[in-house]
């Protein structure tokens, strides 16, 4: 199976690999997937007082497409408000990375990871209305 140039680029030069302080009040952490299924993504966002995402980090166990999807997701969420980030769709990731049908689940996982991070942040902020529930899988 050949990978698109964009997947290869994210794989070889992943953006925003790393870890933010998960105990910090303005950091949201999402961990999705399972090792038995062959992919686990951790995505973290850090917001400023205006609810704007100022930093994002990821770590991913998974195939090249999973790594590229999460790397791209961190790039895209940075600079967006949390609500804007919540609008990112897996189909946008599929299009940007030219993922083949067998790799669509990688993009779904990246979308889930963004939402899980947002949910974690909202929980910390004590917001009761959790508008960004993770889609049931």
């Amino acid at each position: 199976m050949a990978y698109s140039d964009k997947v290869v680029d994210h794989f070889e030069h992943p953006r925003n690999v790393g870890t933010l302080d998960k105990n910090s009040a303005n950091v949201g952490t999402g961990v999705v997937g399972a090792p038995e299924c062959g992919d686990v993504m951790k995505l973290q966002i850090q917001v400023d007082e205006n609810d704007r995402i100022v930093d994002a980090k990821f770590k991913t166990f998974g195939c090249g497409s999973a790594i590229a999807s999460s790397s791209l997701a961190t790039e895209w969420v940075k600079g967006k408000t949390v609500d804007e980030a919540g609008q990112i769709k897996n189909t946008d990731i599929v299009k940007e990375l030219a993922l083949p049908p067998v790799k669509i689940h990688c993009s779904v996982l990246a979308e889930d990871a963004i939402r899980a991070a947002i949910r974690d942040l909202r929980q910390k902020q004590g917001a009761p209305g959790d508008k960004t529930a993770v889609a049931a899988k």
């Binding site: 992943p14 690999v17 870890t19 997937g33 399972a34 090792p35 991913t60």
Partner: peptide, 23 residues
């Protein structure tokens, strides 16, 4: 360096005991 599982292992978390969200 990119693996969340490796990070957890370094922190001493047993990944077989984690409740993963299966998909």
């Amino acid at each position: 360096k990119m693996s969340p599982l490796y990070e957890m292992a370094l922190e001493g978390i047993d990944i077989t005991k984690v409740q993963w969200a299966h998909h």
